[in-house]
């Protein structure tokens, strides 16, 4: 297995006909892609289906990756467009950042998740649950910044917006996440202090 190789070397191998090298790339990024997809779909089955679709699309388009950006940035661009297309196909509403009702809708969508929370008081679960209560836009930007190790410039490339707009969106998303945590997990947050 060529696990010691960097992304560009693996891509060269895949393009050279070594299809198995792609399995290393999939293993390397599957958790990031799946987490991002889950932020959009809010459902593990759909997230798995979308994630597989993303990796297949990326494989088909691999010759178009020129190495100008990181492979992860290129891959997350595919994640973003595929997830948005998936939501459109499912006829789910993609909520605007400016829509104040977004939180209530997210709350109602995830009432099931919150029902399990009494038994899951750990710090990690609490944060993950709080992120799942956010709109997909907010959850995506927080995941890209904190978990996918993308800089503001890279996130701007993925989302197709200006770096300053990313900064503003990230700031709003963080504020909303804190509000969510205060609203739903105030006791747990206090326990941690």
């Amino acid at each position: 297995m060529s696990t010691g190789q960097n992304d560009n070397e693996l891509i060269s191998n895949v393009l050279g006909g070594d299809q198995q090298a792609y399995a290393v790339l999939v293993d390397r990024y599957k958790s990031y892609v799946f987490t991002l997809a889950l932020r959009f779909t809010k459902n593990r089955e759909d997230a798995e289906e979308v994630s597989q679709d993303i990796f297949i699309k990326a494989y088909r388009a691999l010759a178009d990756f020129r190495g100008a950006s990181k492979f992860s940035t290129w891959l997350y661009t595919i994640v973003n467009t595929t997830c948005i297309t998936f939501l459109r196909k499912k006829r789910l509403e993609v909520y605007s950042l400016d829509n104040e009702n977004v939180f209530e809708v997210a709350d109602s969508q995830d009432s099931g998740l919150r029902a399990n929370l009494v038994e899951q008081k750990s710090r990690v679960n609490m944060v993950n649950q709080a992120i799942s209560l956010l709109s997909s836009d907010d959850a995506e930007i927080i995941t890209l910044f904190y978990k996918a190790e993308q800089s503001l410039d890279e996130i701007a490339k993925v989302l197709g917006i200006e770096t300053n707009a990313v900064k503003v969106r990230l700031h709003r998303a963080r504020t909303r996440l804190r509000e969510k945590m205060q609203k739903h997990f105030a006791a747990e947050v206090n326990d941690l202090n």
Binding site: K30, F34, N128, I131, I142, T143, K147, L177
Partner: peptide
């Protein structure tokens, strides 16, 4: 936020 974990497929 840093302590949030990635989900596994």
């Amino acid at each position: 936020m840093f302590s949030s974990e990635l989900e596994e497929p």
